[in-house]
Design a protein around this nucleic acid. Structure first.
Lengths: 346, 346
DNA sequence: TTGAAAGCGATACCAC
DNA sequence: GTGGTATCGCTTTCAA
């Protein structure tokens, strides 16, 4: 095998830099960690040598000494969850500000794997831990391994023991947002095409729908609520047709997910009902498909990135937790206006 | 905040064990790494102390000394890819046999991120590297950072410079499998409902379809081939209807993906055409939805797990690469027989 | 402000 | 077989 890559020549160390710049390792170390007690001229010289020699401190050695790793780990049960990436980016953004890296681990939802992963992570001196659900908010059992008290922990998109702070989306508030938007756009009969009951978020969204209507001084009509047995567009399609059967005069429908909304849109199209002039539609989740619908779907966006950021900040500044201790942090959703609802200002 | 977890008491070290068992650290180290040069009695005693004290060697310290991390990293461009998890499990299985752990990193498909991640990984003394595509086989640029020659590298579900071995599914062979199965099940007019041309795998599958038919001594009929503009069931539905229009007498259809097959099944159902008595259907990928179709879908399974295993073994035994140097390893697909095709033996 | 030296927790070479 | 000890690369008192 002809070797195409660089020779594996020994990496330059603190000592190399020290010798080259005519000081001792102590001094170089101070410069690297930019401590104040270093003369300006010396610092300049050392810094110069550092990037001349392309020195990067060995994190393993540093870790041995400091017992830290500048790394925070995310343990998830579902890599493929459609929300993992967005949340992870949030965590990474928060982490990188603090000069930390993020590690992702998959427990496959198996406690045994989780324990194994945690053991590994803890052995590698992880500095903080975030347990994240990939696609579904809900309760979870305690970590498969007791976490040492000096490792901050948070739940993200899931929750459990009140000892561990959790970051969740404000599904209820999001649903209210949708209802209020529809009302503001002139809808008088707003239906709710809900997702499967077993999903915790659907309960929250239903509550938001009800609270929203009530708050608007409107009455609740059970005939305006349909529950789809699944999240698929197909079932959304059927549920929408039911809804129309029960309440032919409805002029708006709030869907519990974008997928359901896709189904609803399809049915409305098949029936020759125009969106948004005859019926307005709002989805939930702001999946990428929302923008590609005809018309582009107005939807409630989950604050995934922001949730990740908060989780990251939370574990990086555990002092917050001590003082404020917000066991449950509900992050507000935002409404993304597109063309499946009428413009509020027109 | 009342602390519910264990006190963070200092972890037990090699030295602790040594003292407790009345030997020196050298000896304990030997036992831990089960070196032969240790007396049976001493070994027993030390081992006993080890699990009495719940000693686990500190991988950071060990890493500093050995320059290794017992960890192999996977860098993927797509965490949410529907195939990531299965391949990752394969890698993990191969790794765990060698006592290695696996780290997953997301480059988000951005070279800059990839470079950043690689820098981090290399700094942390990763022992091997696998670049993995989450959902689509295709060529990729060289690693965003030159990889030191002593770190074995492999591509998984993607490929690039011939210096780096690649593990890919044998899409062509898989397609042949499907065609041959359909023929064996008595199909005389086998259509191919292909996916979008831009996807490399569809080309391979088309070739397999053609080679398969040719090999069976059948002629190729362009009218039996449809190309769906996307992978969605909707487009599969339409393509299937086209196919029937062009060749009303077809009695089998091989679909380029399970999703397309779902669409095809839907159309056949709508048309009142029975599967498998009138038309037999085979999918590709063996997604979980295949088994839930009516009838359950016969499909060609991608050897994802096996591919992961091979990638893992490859980077763990780079000597193989030196001698055999299989730049491209095509792993055979397997046929999963279900009820959308007629039983071969009946 | 700078430097000397003691670790962090393990491995490995070399005596005994 | 077992033990002493230098070493991996860096951080961190503590003196100078």
């Amino acid at each position: 095998m002809t070797d195409t890559s660089e020779a594996p020549r020994r990496r330059t160390t603190l000592k190399d830099v020290a010798i080259r710049s005519g000081v001792t390792v102590s001094t170089v170390s101070k410069v690297v960690n930019n401590r104040p007690d270093v003369g300006a001229e010396v610092r300049r010289r050392v810094l110069e040598t550092i990037d001349l020699m392309e020195f990067r401190p060995n994190p393993v050695a540093r870790g041995l000494r400091t017992q830290r790793s500048d790394t925070i780990a995310i343990v998830t049960d579902d890599l493929e969850g459609i929300f993992t990436t967005a949340m992870m980016r949030g965590v990474e953004d928060a982490a990188s500000i603090a000069g930390m890296g993020v590690l992702l681990c998959n427990s496959y939802g198996e406690p045994e794997r989780e324990a194994q992963q945690l053991r590994r992570l803890l052995d590698r001196q992880i500095d903080a831990l975030i347990f994240m659900s990939g696609n579904r908010v809900g309760p979870r059992p305690d970590p498969a391994l007791p976490i040492p008290g000096d490792v901050p922990v948070a739940y993200l998109y899931e929750y459990g023991s009140p000892d561990i702070p959790a970051i969740l989306p404000d599904d209820e508030g999001g649903a209210r947002l949708a209802v209020e938007h529809l009302a503001a756009c002139g809808a008088s009969s707003i239906a709710f095409l809900n997702g499967p009951r077993e999903w915790e978020a659907t309960g929250d969204r239903l509550r938001g729908y009800e609270v929203g209507l009530t708050h608007l001084g409107r009455s609740l009509d059970p005939g305006l609520i349909a529950t789809s047995p699944s999240w698929t567009p197909e079932d959304g399609y059927h549920a929408m047709s039911q809804l129309l059967e029960q309440r032919p005069n409805l002029d708006a429908v709030f869907c519990g997910s974008d997928d359901l909304a896709v189904g609803a849109l399809a049915l409305l199209r098949d029936r020759g009902i125009d969106v948004p002039t005859e019926v307005q539609v709002v989805g939930f989740d702001d999946r990428s498909l929302a923008v590609h619908q005809r018309p582009p779907l107005t939807t409630v966006a989950l604050p995934l990135h922001e949730m990740g950021v908060r989780a990251g900040e939370l574990v990086l500044n555990p002092r917050h937790a001590v003082t404020e201790a917000p066991a449950l942090d509900r992050v507000p959703c935002t409404l993304i206006e597109r063309q499946s609802t009428r413009n509020q200002t027109s």
